[in-house]
Design a protein around this nucleic acid. Structure first.
Length: 782
DNA sequence: CAGTGAGCGAGCTTCCGCTTGACTT
């Protein structure tokens, strides 16, 4: 008898399931979606109930053909795509493409790839749920409409030539970044004074140790000084000691989002790096599926974790827990991310080892006992005033899950109390304490930190925007479009005051701290800010943080059969289409103009705004008789924050900084960044040089060095044919115009002897046999 | 390779969500 064909989404899954099901089934994968909306004219017939036009994309033709062939030879076809909206749609598309009747084709689902789960699923096949499929179609169509109607509005209203785009997910992601930036720009720091006293007392061994106690915060320096003065010659006594038990509980096993966050905090990985490494671990069978929003573990898994905890740390450390998802938008088609074999606590592969160990530890900790603490709070009275000081300490009584793992906190969740409370020496009520020193330190309030890739993912997940499979691509999109930049920011020095009481004297010193430094954070560009403002002004419903949540409710109603999907789309589309038409007709072009002042020389207006080639400053108006002057903003500057003085500074280029070999040396910023021009040749300036301040003495060696290096790397030049033989970091190669060509291996040694005929033959052959076509879209040459 | 800066119009771009590979400079 012919084998049955079972189709799943992921090829790694297919292999595992085939082993479980044995002889009767051939298990194949369809590699995700196999059909999509046609690209021309949106792929939707908006005048006919939004009828979608589906095609098999080029890169899926091979898979579809193979599946068709196998299906023909097979017995029954079983559909085992993921149990969520997208998975249900994939099953339906498979029916359509393979010529199966969705009303009778067997559809099975499981949340975990374990023998009992899969055998159980095979016992209870159902059919494709068309309501759920329709909910997916509504999702797909709405996203296509938003993306393909909104993006062209930007193309028309922006003078920039980038491939601008807008969408339900990406535009809101940019908005989150933009709004945080403006909060930071508008932030005014306030300060207060933190009172901290250092006392000495004997520890358990009778050895004197120092410990700290805090007083009430003082609003200003006067208050702080008054308080310290009031403590002169005081005696200090413990008035009360309280001991309270406390506990800490482990975090839930990893989802995609929490894995990305922890890998970012603990290992410093970008979101995409985490996903690439996790994919490797998954494909080699070391972890379960890495794109999931579920925190639950299979019973088989909890048993294995329990056994491992017990074997490694003893039964005292075991505590089996079931975690529930806090996130309403979760679809839970898979398990949480966990090791497939708990007995492997590490991975052989150096690349993935750290991430694997992180997953292993998190999974272990999730099934371990609470950590037990003892928190001590001692109140200390001051003889000379009515105020009180408080000393607190924490002692770990039982480490529990902390033996293995502790989740890190995000910057914005950190409080002063996280300055880890130390251990207090034993204190008794009535005990007198000798004061070593008392300090009042000025502390400034801080704005919320800028987002990291991972904290943006966290925020998106909270808003229910995006899915595990799209978090990393969404970040790539907004970076690629130039709406957002990832970079470091240097801090600025700031003075703060410290008042000290030592003996009977209060003294004031000023110290310095670095503030506002950030590493690898997301900054909005002027383009991102301007586009966000525009979209918010004209499409506030789509830019609303709750838009996705609202339509998700409607998708749910469609999935439950309570709402027709094309009715839902119609209710959305009609008003939306009006907004689009209205905006195209009436909205002004997007400029983001800001007036900075008046140029003292010409008396003309100085403005900062978006130009065709990015943010710039401008003196004068295009309608003036004289042409306006233009200058590009520096990378770190922004239309919103640039000052008049900084703007005027930008007009100081180009600068002639001296003469070398009887030719002018000129510094300027061009299409490809800062450069030196000398003798009709150009030399790019590296980041360490500032074109506004570079001196002739710094510039001259750059010219000489680069000229020499170029000479050395040139093997031969065929002037007439405009072909060069050059030496690069990978050996000799041929350059014709902007294209490079490899030299055949057997001629590498004697590259210098190549004749023009030989070179032309190599080029022709390379052009005749272009490198194999990749699935990726053509690169945008920037 | 090192200019430009407004707007027109050829012809193109663009979305989100499922999946992996086949690319190298």
């Amino acid at each position: 008898m012919a084998k049955n064909l079972l189709i799943v989404e992921s090829p790694a899954k297919a292999k595992t399931i085939e082993k479980i099901l044995g002889e009767d089934f051939e298990v194949k994968s369809c590699y995700g979606h196999i059909r999509d909306l046609e690209k021309g004219d949106m792929g939707i017939d908006v005048n006919n109930k939004y009828l979608p036009r589906y095609i098999v994309p080029e890169d899926k033709e091979k898979v579809v053909k193979e599946l068709k062939g196998i299906a023909k030879k097979s017995g029954e076809v079983w559909l085992a795509t993921d149990e969520d909206r997208e998975g249900e749609a994939i099953s339906w598309h498979l029916c359509e493409v393979l010529g199966l009747d969705p009303a009778i084709t067997k559809r099975i689902v499981f949340h975990e790839i374990t023998k009992p789960a899969i055998q159980n699923a095979v016992q209870r096949p159902r059919t494709v749920d068309m309501n759920l499929v329709n909910a997916q179609q509504a999702r797909r169509i709405l996203d296509r409409i938003v993306g393909f109607e909104l993006s062209p509005v930007l193309w028309r209203k922006m003078s920039m030539k980038n491939n601008l785009s807008a969408g339900r997910v990406q535009s809101v992601a940019v908005r989150i970044i933009a709004e945080r930036e403006r909060e930071i720009n508008a932030f005014l720091a306030t300060s207060n004074f933190r009172i901290e006293a250092t006392f000495t007392a004997n520890d358990l061994n009778g050895k004197p140790v120092n410990f700290k106690a805090e007083g009430k915060k003082q609003a200003d320096a006067e208050g702080a000084e008054k308080f310290l003065q009031s403590c002169v010659n005081a005696t200090y006594k413990v008035s009360d000691v309280q001991v309270k038990p406390g506990k800490k509980t482990p975090a839930a096993p990893f989802t995609t989002s929490t894995l990305q966050q922890e890998a970012s905090r603990k290992l410093g990985y970008s979101v995409s790096r985490t996903m690439i490494l996790a994919q490797k671990l998954y494909e080699s069978g070391k972890i379960t599926y890495m794109r999931t929003d579920s925190v639950s573990l299979s019973e088989t898994a909890t048993d294995a974790v329990k056994a491992q905890v017990s074997a490694q740390y003893g039964d005292k450390y075991v505590q089996v827990r079931k975690f529930k998802n806090k996130n309403e938008s979760a679809q839970e088609a898979h398990e949480a991310i966990r090791p497939t074999y708990m007995e492997n606590n590490s991975s052989d592969d150096a690349d993935t080892r750290k991430l694997y160990e992180l997953i292993w530890k998190r999974t272990m900790a999730s099934q371990m006992a609470d950590a037990e603490l003892e928190k001590t709070t001692a109140r200390i009275s001051i003889s000379t005033n009515k105020d009180e000081l408080t000393a607190s300490g924490e002692v770990l009584k039982f480490d529990g899950f902390l033996k293995v793992y502790m989740e890190d906190k995000d910057e914005e969740e950190l409080t002063e109390d996280d300055n880890q409370e130390g251990v207090l020496p034993p204190l008794k009520s009535g005990q007198e304490l000798p004061l070593k020193e008392m300090k009042a330190t000025e502390r400034f309030s801080r704005p919320l930190p800028r987002y990291t890739e991972a904290s943006l993912v966290k925020k998106l997940e909270e808003l229910g925007i995006g899915r595990p499979s799209t978090y990393a691509p969404t970040i790539s999109t907004i970076l690629k479009r130039g709406y957002v930049e990832k970079r470091d920011k240097e801090g600025v020095k700031r003075d703060y005051r410290v008042l000290k009481l030592t003996g009977t004297k209060v003294t004031l010193v000023t110290e310095q701290e670095n503030t506002g430094a950030e590493k690898s954070k997301l900054f909005p560009t002027d383009l991102g800010l301007v586009v966000t403002d525009f979209l918010k002004q004209h499409f506030d419903d789509i830019m609303d943080y709750n838009f996705t949540a609202r339509i998700e409710q409607e998708f749910d109603e469609v999935a439950q059969g309570k709402l027709l999907w094309n009715k839902m789309i119609d209710d959305f589309y009609l008003p939306f289409k009006k907004d689009v038409e209205n905006t195209i007709e009436n909205a002004e072009r997007i400029k983001g103009e800001r007036e900075l002042g008046v140029d003292p020389v010409s008396g003309k207006k100085v403005v900062a705004r978006m130009g065709r080639y990015g943010p710039m400053v401008q003196i004068g108006d295009v309608n003036d008789e004289e042409k306006p002057k233009f200058a590009k903003l520096k990378n770190t500057q922004s239309i919103e924050t640039i000052s008049y003085e900084e703007a005027m500074e930008l007009f100081k280029l180009p600068r002639t900084i001296g003469q070398f070999e009887d030719q002018d040396v000129v510094v300027n910023i061009g299409r490809f960044g800062p450069y030196l021009a000398h003798d009709k040749k150009f030399y790019s300036l590296s980041k360490e040089f500032d074109p506004y301040t570079i001196t002739f003495d710094e510039a001259q060696p750059i010219i000489v060095e680069k000229r020499d290096a170029k000479e050395k790397s040139t093997i031969k030049i065929f002037e007439k044919e405009k072909i060069q033989l050059l030496r690069g970091p990978y050996g000799p190669y041929i350059k014709q115009g902007l294209r490079n060509f490899k030299i055949p291996k057997d001629k590498l040694e004697t590259a210098a002897d190549l004749t023009i005929e030989e070179v032309q033959k190599i080029i022709e052959e390379a052009k005749a046999n272009p490198p194999k076509k990749s699935y990726r879209k053509k690169k945008t040459g920037s």
